[in-house]
């Protein structure tokens, strides 16, 4: 039934001031005045898609509903537009630091801007860093002896950003970088899954996207090598892309075992 989003309507107390703000600070196009039947004098502005903003002048404005939370609207900019917008925001006196930086994935840029009447906008842009394969160039990481991992164990490594997972069939070194955007996953022991606090993605221990979550590609792996003495080494500088879980990806808990992957899976 619905063909798509058309426009958002906002009340403002001073149409001239707000129209100038949305044009000069946010960077919207002014389409025209009083093109719409509404409760007051109005100005229609446009983005680069068909989406519009309608500013309607009224004597009094309640920008944010009492007792509500997290109310905001998010402009999406290209990364070039975002760099220009930051300059305009700074010139207009806004703090252009992201107040919620700890909740952002890498490459996810965001600032909060309030219009002259207090309407809250998130301004966001995504750089290629959001989805590129991250490598820290740590070199191989020694992970201890294979007998130190009980079946079911999941150990998070800070250096190299991976989980070493011991399942019944053996070992998997699962990348901690979410395949949706580069958020860092954590292991939720009580829920028995990997969880991305950035956008809510969930994965099982084999790295498969769980149902009821944002569907994502299977988590990447890193090569695991088990030495003759049973010590485990993981190479986080090599990432292995995969289309799903395959038992052949598991390195058996045996001295001398190691990961084998086709060249085409390396990334």
């Amino acid at each position: 039934m619905i063909d798509g989003f058309s426009h958002i309507v906002l009340h403002v107390t001073d149409l001239d001031r707000s129209e100038a703000f949305y044009r000069d600070v946010f960077g919207l196009d002014v389409i025209g005045r009083d093109l719409v039947a509404d409760e007051g004098r109005n100005s229609l502005l446009g983005t680069n898609t068909r989406q519009r903003v309608l500013l309607v002048e009224v004597p009094e404005v309640v920008a944010i509903r009492p007792n509500s939370s997290s109310i905001h609207h998010a402009w999406l900019l290209t990364i070039d537009e975002f760099e220009r917008a930051k300059d305009r925001f700074a010139a207009a006196g806004f703090d252009i630091n992201d107040s919620r930086a700890q909740f952002r994935a890498r490459g996810e840029n965001s600032v909060d801007i309030f219009d002259p009447d207090g309407h809250r906008f998130q301004v966001q842009a995504y750089s290629p860093a959001a989805t590129e394969v991250i490598k820290e160039n740590t070199g191989p990481i020694a992970c201890g002896h294979m007998d130190d991992y009980a079946v079911g164990a999941v150990k998070a490594f800070v250096k190299g950003k991976f989980f070493l997972v011991r399942i019944e069939e053996g070992f998997l070194a699962v990348s901690r970088w979410c395949t949706h955007m580069n958020g860092l996953l954590s292991w939720k022991q009580e829920h028995w899954h990997f969880y991305c606090p950035m956008h809510g993605a969930m994965f099982n221990r084999k790295g498969e996207s769980l149902p009821c979550s944002r569907p994502c590609p299977t988590l990447r792996l890193h090569p695991v090598t088990i030495g003759a003495d049973g010590t485990i080494t993981v190479d986080p500088d090599t990432a292995i892309r995969r289309d799903g879980f395959d038992p052949a990806q598991v390195v058996p808990a045996k001295a001398g075992a190691s990961s084998r992957f086709p060249e085409t899976a390396l990334c």
């Binding site: 989003f5 983005t47 999406l76 537009e81 917008a85």
Partner: peptide, 14 residues
């Protein structure tokens, strides 16, 4: 050309 691509989402309280 505007310097904004689109409105990507809104957070609304219910």
């Amino acid at each position: 050309m505007a310097d904004v691509e689109t409105l990507s989402h809104s957070g609304i309280s219910v």
